[in-house]
Nucleic acid binder design. Sequence first.
DNA 1: GTGGCATTGATTTTTGTTGACCTATTGTTA
DNA 2: TAACAATAGGTCAACAAAAATCAATGCCAC
Lengths: 162, 162
Amino acid sequence: MQDLHTLTQNIERYILEMLDAEEEDFVQLRRKELAETFGCVPSQINYVLRSRFTPEQGFLVESRRGGNGFIRILKISCESSEEKLDHIDDLIGDYISERGARRVLQSLQERDLITMRERLLMEISLRNSEELSRDACGLSVRERGIITAEMLKRMLRGIMLA
Amino acid sequence: MQDLHTLTQNIERYILEMLDAEEEDFVQLRRKELAETFGCVPSQINYVLRSRFTPEQGFLVESRRGGNGFIRILKISCESSEEKLDHIDDLIGDYISERGARRVLQSLQERDLITMRERLLMEISLRNSEELSRDACGLSVRERGIITAEMLKRMLRGIMLA
DNA sequence: GTGGCATTGATTTTTGTTGACCTATTGTTA
DNA sequence: TAACAATAGGTCAACAAAAATCAATGCCAC
């Protein structure tokens, strides 16, 4: 696990370095070219993107097929310290009630770490998720609280409070 | 990095610049002339309009054939919240694929109707809901698409009104 | 040996480009 | 005024290029 030399890890590092080097907060590349650079099959690139450049990890990926196709990788969030992420994890834990989640969001918004609209978005998402897991899946209160906690952490990690 | 200029992209940019230059929020042009300007077949213009100037991207296209025929491209304004909401409902409808949802979000962000962070939050939310309804509830693709549409509309309505 | 991450390649889907043929509008003329 | 000619835009199918998907397989760590 300490061995950072799998193909996937190399490609991940390569893209991260490109992002670092750029003025912009995005890089654009050709899947086929990148695959050739690493001497692998093109679909390997999709695997790297799917597993390492997800919205939960603060990235958005746009692409186009066909003539002059491309893949664009955008880094959204600012860098954030491990501490802050840990703090959020502590704050939320493995289980949280809907009320508790709302308290967390209110506090973050009052401290200007998220905007009003972002808070609103997350509240709507949580309510949706709550509704889905209650009505469609018939999950218990406890199970729903676990899902809510997971969801809230994903969203907050995604925009990585700076 | 490389030459990112297909014919379609050049024509798109040309029309956007015309729109920018105009006082009005529309431009009017001749299909044949524009095709000649770019040294291409006239139907190429239709392709550009069909793929780049759709309602989803905030445009309406009108035209007339025969003598003195023309093509007119209008920018949808969406001044009031009401207009935005109607527009959103039109774009999403009762069913939407995950891919379609992501296209809508990209387009809204490019039109500055939502921020990057908001787009990111909504993508996380969509993934979460997809995962929940697929794995925990075992819903079909169709059912998930209906839920996705509903959720997307709720989120967008929520922040457009804020 | 089992479970999960990584790798591969065959197949599918999307995008861009072109040209042959279709339809609508306007003007002209018998 | 009814046909017809000229004009201008629309549709569609075929092809090429590039990325996405998915299922099968490989590789470790436990």
